[in-house]
Amino acid sequence: MSALEIHQLHKSFGSTHVLKDVNISIASGEFLILVGPSGCGKSTLMNAIAGLEPITSGEIRIGGEDVTWRTPAERDIAMVFQSYALYPSMTVRGNIAFGLEMRKMPKAEREAAVQRVADLLQISHLLDRKPSQLSGGQRQRVAMGRALAREPQIYLFDEPLSNLDAKLRVEMRTEIKKLHQRLGTTIVYVTHDQIEAMTLADRIAVMRDGQVQQLGTPDEIYNDPINMFVAGFMGSPAMNFVEAVLEGGRGNYALRISTPEQQDLVLPWPAERDTDVLASRVGQKMMLGLRPEHLSEAGGHSGAGTGMAAVIGVVEPTGADVLINLPLGEGEVTARVGPDCRARPGERLELQVDMRRAVLFDPQSEVRLA
């Protein structure tokens, strides 16, 4: 397996600047996921890595070698597409072996490679079937097997699970995770599904409007987002954003949230998380970010946090927990509480706010402040 380096990459289609100064470096054997909303440039970046789309400027290196202007065949990569792209007239065996045959691999070696990946993906019993005789999950395994048989330097996955139903997506996600752990392959994987990104990746590149907003581990992206876009995009349900005014001074800061129908809510900021930037922001509006799990039912197992109460708007049981929608400040927030919560819409609920894990953003620039 090989490392991948992308340096100052730009891509334009006419006057439209699609990729803007992209810089990414991943180690050999690392699993990188490119994630972002539709139209953010992640598939264009994937095609640029593969050599399917020529770049405007910049550099791409695979295994230390400059491949920026090499053809896809010269880059030693393998791609797994959303659409499977299997040959309908060939059997599973023929589909997996086709690329090896084109590379003039001897027949005995081809057959051994096909059997190896078939055993690995548990599709040995399907080798003599045609794609039309397979389920969606089986076809995706065949597409993965065709890529794995080649043993290239880097594997590229372009939304490979988006055509599968929800249950099958979860199963295939687990299989891909196991596969990476077993083989230690270098993988770049495109998805718009942030749950997929969080569960599969060693590191995640969150993209927006052709730029990488943040590159980090799933924990860094989730718990230490660099701006409001990353904070709001990663997480399900999304992070709550509440407008508040910063008060007090060092060691004694607090966030005052105006509530139209009751007394203002004042949430103390943890003294251990004071930063110099807060001193110049006293009296100014801030955007307070709280994950749904930072709002828990009072008297719950955590027992930590500042108390607040609000009238419940909507209750959404999910099985493992309950999502509660309730007013806070000028808007609404979502709280994630335990499955035993019996609160109903219209009732008043006492909550604990865990400010130790809260984050603050500048409301204009949307940049993280603390």
Score class of each variant (00 low, 15 high):
Leu200Ile: 07
Pro268Tyr: 00
Ile49Trp: 03
Val266Arg: 01
Glu30Ser: 12
Ala304Gln: 15
Ala304Gly: 00
Met198Thr: 02
Ile62Trp: 02
Glu74Ala: 14
Gly64Phe: 08
His10Glu: 11
Val337Lys: 00
Val314Thr: 13
Asp340Val: 10
Ser57Gly: 01
Pro37Val: 12
Ile24Asn: 12
Gly329Gln: 06
Gln213Asp: 06
Ala85Ser: 13
Tyr87Trp: 14
Gly319Arg: 13
Pro54Ser: 12
Ala370Lys: 10
Gly39Arg: 10
Arg110Lys: 11
Ser12Met: 05
Leu168Ile: 14
Ala166Val: 14
Ser12Ala: 14
Leu134Ala: 12
Gly313Lys: 06
Gln352Ser: 14
Arg93Cys: 03
Ile60Gly: 06
Glu111Trp: 07
Asp165Cys: 11
Met102Tyr: 09
Pro260Arg: 04
Ile195Gln: 02
Leu52Phe: 15
Met207Cys: 05
Val282Ile: 14
Pro88Arg: 08
Lys11Cys: 00
Ala113Ile: 02
Pro339Lys: 08
Leu328Val: 10
Asp219Gln: 13
Ser296Val: 13
Val170Lys: 09
Lys42Gly: 03
Pro106Met: 08
Asp276Val: 02
Val67Asn: 08
Pro218Gln: 09
Gly303Ala: 08
Pro327Thr: 07
Pro54Asn: 11
Asp21Arg: 09
Pro131Tyr: 05
Ala358Val: 08
Val245Cys: 04
Pro131Asp: 05
Leu161Met: 10
Ala147Ser: 14
Asp165Leu: 13
Ile257Arg: 04
Ile204Gln: 04
Ala48Asp: 06
Thr56Gly: 11
Leu323His: 15
Leu295Trp: 05
Leu19Thr: 12
Glu332Trp: 10
Gly184Met: 07
Gly283Asp: 00
Leu164Met: 09
Pro106His: 04
Arg342Asp: 15
Leu34Ile: 07
Ser280Ala: 15
Tyr189Thr: 03
Met46Tyr: 06
Leu323Phe: 15
